[in-house]
Design a protein around this nucleic acid. Sequence first.
DNA 1: TGCATATAATAAGTATACTTATTATAATTG
DNA 2: CAATTATAATAAGTATACTTATTATATGCA
Lengths: 150, 150
Amino acid sequence: MSDKNFSVKNADDSSGFLLWQVTALWQRGIKKALNVHNLTHSQFVLLASLLWLSRQSEEVTQIDLSAHSKIDPMTTSTVLRTLQTKKFLKRKEHVTDTRAKVIELTDEGASVTKVALKTVEKFDSDFFSTLGEGQKDFNKIVLNLISKNK
Amino acid sequence: MSDKNFSVKNADDSSGFLLWQVTALWQRGIKKALNVHNLTHSQFVLLASLLWLSRQSEEVTQIDLSAHSKIDPMTTSTVLRTLQTKKFLKRKEHVTDTRAKVIELTDEGASVTKVALKTVEKFDSDFFSTLGEGQKDFNKIVLNLISKNK
DNA sequence: TGCATATAATAAGTATACTTATTATAATTG
DNA sequence: CAATTATAATAAGTATACTTATTATATGCA
């Protein structure tokens, strides 16, 4: 069963493959959980980012949202327009920077986001519950990976 | 800075958000690394799965590849046709099950896969090197998450 | 055996996620 | 202050990743 083409005996020894698989599993779960709110995961992330950033700043732009959510600017633009169509947010002209758009949650958008936050937090709580106290270690490891690879 | 809508003080305490972010980082890196072979990550995963499964079985079908790679059957179908166009594999009629297609690597496909495997292993080795000996723990944790959530 | 059920593949449609290139405008600096 | 450089947004194009529905065929069991 050994093969010089593969450095590991089986896929379960490949951190990359495992990371990819667990994320796919997590994404499918989140997708189903958010389905009841008629939101995709990216839509939710941008809404939650907007809710978060709106607490500090009056004028949240698309690039602010892209930076905070880590969703690339083009995708951010596309998803925000979808969310505008759904009437969850408004995109206005920026007062001083005419290149930029100021994004604001509508009342409905804020409301949906807050409910969806509970859904996602519940899902995550369940998904990672098997880690128990080890969840803190998991977060530390992943944060380390992120900081070393960005 | 506290807000009853958010259960955590910041996004760095959310395992789900962290998982999503590190995977996005990993995916971007893999994408760039595989770019020199003119392969996407999904294409690579299916090719590597095919190389792997071909060692055990004469007749590897699309559903076999889907199950092994965890890529859903529809996406598997689409990606395999792209790989067929690239002449990296052939899709033949199954002898006994006429619903199924038998997938076989071409010589070029096998060759590309083997080189790409080295590229991916090198990338993963670098990406996870910061974990040091902790990589085994990481794999264990992730395997646990996968088995408990599937 | 014959039929209900399961399975393999895929068509069509929606929504990311990325790339490169473009437009418009800001900001910096010689 | 004019010229260069950087930035915000997005058009166009490619490739997943998923959903629901369909077609064809295989399989299990009464």
